[in-house]
Amino acid sequence: MNHTGLRIADVTVTDTRLQNVTVTRGVLWRVRMRGAWLGQVSIDGQIEGLTVNGVDVGPLIEAELDRRYPERVKMRPATADGFREAWDILESLWAETVDRARQLPPPLLHERVDGEWSFIQTLRHLLFATDIWVSRAVLGNPRPWHPLSLPFDEMDPDERVPWDRDAQPTLDEVLALRADRAETVRRVLTGLTDEALGADTEPVDGPGYSPAAQYPVAECLGTVLLEEWQHRLYAERDLATLRNQ
């Protein structure tokens, strides 16, 4: 049984068993469990303020992820040089991931694993992330997206913003667009100074996301780094599943 868009709030549930339940791109916020029994539970996502038996495990998780992925620390730069180094790392890691993707039959790159985006959709979403946070917020283009850009599912639909989930471009088509966006990011980072990094963007009005407002330049560029880093991990996870089918 599948439920999409289900919202449950302000409910007390007692003596209930949830078994073989999968929550994809869901939100658990201000959830309190008392006398709970959790076994064989897998949580994959952004975690804030998670307390287990009185212990805030968030910092422990962050420390372990940094230990497992030493480059992850570089994704939180505080200087212009740090942002340039982080982007170099991401380009190198993504090149390896794309090489692994090319080893699969092309149809599998459109296959979704456990309801997540396919590999091609993931790359299309990263086009959108660069469009909104670099081309739009930092460079001031109110409508920077390509027809193949794929917004995040939670964004309010807007007929003026491309949102074709069913498009089936080839890997090379999407990679060509990725190369163009990477050149845009590289151009911004090449001229970036620590002073500019500490400044705010000018509001850009237009349809879709992000809302017209001032944003710290460091926050815009940092969001792109986070998107690139995290979605590559998701892609690697799903490619491994597809290879083992």
Rank of each mutant, 00 (worst) to 15 (best):
R243E: 15
H3M: 13
W229M: 07
G206Y: 09
D44L: 12
V52F: 13
P59M: 12
L177F: 01
N141D: 14
R67V: 03
Y234S: 14
W37G: 05
H110C: 06
G54I: 06
R178F: 11
R186M: 04
I132E: 08
I47G: 14
E202V: 15
E64C: 06
A9N: 13
L126E: 02
W94Q: 12
G26S: 02
T12I: 08
V11I: 12
Q103R: 15
V27W: 04
P147R: 00
Q46D: 12
L242G: 03
P207A: 04
S92Q: 11
V134L: 09
R67S: 08
T24Y: 01
G191P: 01
R34Q: 15
V21G: 09
D10M: 00
W94G: 01
E183R: 13
D194M: 12
G140P: 10
P107R: 11
L189Y: 03
R124S: 03
D81L: 13
P106E: 08
L18N: 05
R67P: 05
D200H: 15
G26K: 04
N53T: 08
G35D: 13
D114T: 04
A182R: 09
Y209W: 15
P106T: 02
F152D: 10
A137S: 13
M33I: 11
T193N: 03
E85M: 10
Q103A: 15
V185A: 02
I43A: 05
D66G: 08
P207G: 00
Y215P: 00
R76Q: 09
L148M: 10
I120P: 03
L226F: 01
L28Y: 07
E111F: 12
R32V: 13
V224C: 00
E111V: 12
D15N: 14
T51E: 07
V27D: 07
G54S: 05
A213K: 14
Q103F: 02
D238M: 08
I120V: 14
A212T: 05
A36H: 12
M1Q: 13
R237G: 03
A9F: 11
D10V: 00
D153T: 09
E64I: 06
C220L: 10
V21P: 10
M75E: 08
V41R: 12
E116F: 05
A80Y: 01
D164R: 14
W163P: 00
G191Y: 01
E111D: 14
V185E: 05
V174P: 09
D200W: 15
R17H: 10
W37H: 08
R32A: 09
Q214N: 08
S210Q: 12
R25E: 14
V134H: 06
A86D: 05
I89S: 00
A167D: 08
G35R: 08
R136L: 05
R25L: 09
G206M: 07
A199E: 15
E219T: 02
R30L: 11
V138K: 01
P144H: 12
G49N: 14
D88V: 04
G58L: 02
P203R: 10
L139W: 02
L171Q: 04
G222C: 08
L233Q: 10
A218Y: 07
W29Y: 12
L123C: 14
F128S: 01
V204K: 12
Q103I: 05
D180M: 07
G222N: 05
T184F: 00
E236G: 06
P162F: 03
